[in-house]
Simulated scan of single mutants.
Amino acid sequence: MRALSRPYPARDHAPVLTHVDTAIFTARYFTRCLAHPTCRDWCCSHGVDVDEANVARLLEHADELERFTGIDRARWFRDDVTRDAEFPSGAYRRTRVEDGACVFLDRSARGCRIHAFCIATGSDYHELKPMVSTLFPLTFDEGLLRPSDEVHDHSLVCLDAPDTRPSSPTLYRGVRDELRFYFGEPLLAELDALEAAHTPHAPTRLRVVPG
């Protein structure tokens, strides 16, 4: 773990990053989610934490989302609310799990139905898709930018995919553009320098199509 030179707040003021786990510069994974031959949306198995302000934005589009997904809004979220200062609104709710996967998973075409809705309507998916989903397989924890738990316990199906090495990008490179969106160029400049120190032959920027 390395301390960052200064705190980096997200665009909505939270979370605030102060440290980074340097494993994000070395662990690799298969980023083209819908092209993975065996994962079958494994990362959507458990639902996701959604900031309360994000919940409100989704509910503002509830009529259109219900028509697009065929899922009644009453099924979208669990009732319990967790207070957490690392989320922009200070609290989050979790999406419901139905039949072993997040309620927003497209069971036929695969992928996230929130993301698909944004593409279909020409909207920026950052407005509606949860930040936790967008940054996966990175996450934040008490100021630490780190690999998600599924990376640490090696349960992530697409981690270090042997059939894609060495071309598969690192965790950092896989979500670098998303980090730019939420935290800005100054954080990327510092992370790029740390990446170079830990991987002398760090790759040039790769374009990753979100799943």
Rank of each mutant, 00 (worst) to 15 (best):
C118L: 08
I119Q: 15
I119L: 15
I119P: 00
I119W: 14
T121G: 11
T121M: 13
G122Q: 09
G122V: 01
S123Q: 11
S123D: 11
D124C: 07
D124W: 07
D124E: 15
Y125H: 05
H126N: 08
E127C: 05
E127K: 13
L128C: 03
K129W: 11
M131Q: 04
M131I: 10
V132I: 15
S133W: 02
S133R: 07
S133T: 10
T134V: 12
T134H: 09
L135K: 12
F136Y: 15
F136I: 12
P137A: 04
P137C: 06
L138G: 07
L138V: 11
L138H: 05
T139L: 01
T139P: 05
T139Y: 03
T139W: 04
F140W: 04
F140M: 02
F140C: 06
F140I: 03
E142G: 13
E142P: 01
G143Q: 04
L144H: 03
L145A: 01
L145C: 11
L145K: 07
R146S: 07
P147V: 03
P147Y: 05
S148F: 02
H152V: 12
H152D: 11
H152C: 10
H152T: 14
D153L: 12
D153E: 14
H154P: 00
H154E: 15
H154M: 10
S155M: 08
L156Q: 02
L156M: 15
V157N: 07
C158V: 11
D160Y: 01
D160H: 12
A161W: 09
P162V: 03
P162G: 04
D163H: 13
D163A: 13
T164C: 12
T164L: 15
R165V: 12
R165K: 13
R165Y: 13
P166E: 08
P166V: 09
P166H: 12
S167M: 10
S167E: 14
S168G: 12
S168D: 13
P169K: 00
T170R: 03
T170Q: 08
T170G: 05
L171A: 03
L171M: 00
L171P: 06
L171Y: 02
Y172P: 04
R173G: 14
R173Q: 15
G174C: 08
G174V: 01
G174A: 10
D177I: 00
L179G: 04
F181S: 02
Y182Q: 07
Y182V: 03
G184A: 07
G184V: 05
G184L: 01
E185T: 14
E185Y: 09
E185I: 10
P186V: 09
L187Y: 06
L187G: 02
L187I: 01
L188R: 04
E190L: 06
L191N: 02
D192H: 09
D192F: 08
A193M: 10
A193N: 09
A193S: 11
L194D: 07
L194Q: 10
L194Y: 10
L194S: 02
E195N: 14
E195V: 08
A196W: 11
A197N: 08
A197G: 13
H198M: 14
T199D: 12
P200N: 08
P200T: 12
P200A: 14
H201P: 00
H201Q: 14
T204V: 13
T204F: 06
R205Q: 13
R205Y: 12
L206F: 10
R207A: 01
R207C: 11
V208I: 13
V208Q: 00
V209I: 12
V209A: 10
V209T: 14
P210D: 07
P210L: 02
